[in-house]
Nucleic acid binder design. Structure first.
Lengths: 146, 146
DNA sequence: CAAAGTAGTTATATAGTATAACTGTGGGGG
DNA sequence: CCCCCACAGTTATACTATATAACTACTTTG
């Protein structure tokens, strides 16, 4: 049988990094469950979102905006292109560049994606105690991320 | 040349998961730089800390307390034992069990570790705007992590 | 025009995490 | 008392995320 143990967490109880990490894992857990059917990971979500609102950006611009290295970004775009959500279009003016656009299917997908995401986000906001608490949290974590 | 681009981040600007993730990466970045010399990862830190304050716990108890799977915990303890910071002691009453203790070197290491950690934590608290902001952040993220 | 720089890609390495299966041990019910 | 099940730790394995170097193709600059 599992002994009933009381553990002294010492400074972990109030360590910013540790508590932040645990919270982030819980949020991503909920995100993952929300998008299990679509097989959409957080990175995919953010990429689709950025392309939807900034069509025609270069691959490297989207990657940099999201803090993803361009080398690792290739496979992400490959995946989204294979699902016919995103299209690479070679620039006429600079043939090195791949400009990114949502396909018509991608636009439609993005709508549903945002609906699913909003439900996820609403759950998080409720856990936090409402929109004011959410705003306060965002304000605080933004200070950590500069 | 890099075009001067203004990117529309849409809901990412205020998405709990995304902002939390970016903040956590920044905090872990600082943590990593703080402990680069010691080659101590966040998981190692938390394990040493828990053993220091709860000597004699079973491996599986420490692992579970930290949300680490027991299979993955083996390598972590192996590493700490190889550095002579942690000791596995077979329980007399249950020969399946490995009870964990800090070695004398481990106790000493833990002291220095906590000093280094406090400097890191102080930087995070300063970024946040002081201890009250830190307390508020902890309160909020704890709601997300249940 | 040559040299340097840029965009995307490929290959590769490492860390973190998840699962299954195994060994050795302990405990409870027939 | 033995048999079966549960548990602790371990090993092997796989998958994801991330980081770096080097390559190709192309553009810009001196």
């Amino acid at each position: 049988m599992g002994r009933r143990i009381i553990i002294n967490y010492s400074v972990l109880s109030e360590a910013v990094g540790y508590r932040l990490r645990r919270a982030q894992l819980a949020v991503f857990q909920d995100f993952g469950e929300s998008f299990a059917a679509e097989g959409l990971r957080p990175a995919d979500f953010s990429v689709v979102l950025i392309i939807k609102h900034n069509p025609g950006l270069k691959q490297s611009e989207v990657a940099e905006a999201l803090g993803i290295q361009r080398a690792n970004f290739v496979a992400i775009v490959d995946g989204l292109e294979a699902r016919d959500l995103v299209e690479r279009r070679k620039s006429e003016t600079d043939r090195r560049v791949q400009a990114l656009y949502l396909t018509p299917l991608g636009e439609q997908f993005a709508e549903n994606m945002l609906t699913t995401w909003q439900a996820h986000e609403d759950r998080m906001v409720e856990k936090l105690g409402g929109p004011d608490a959410r705003d306060e949290l965002i304000r605080l974590v933004n200070r950590l991320a500069e």
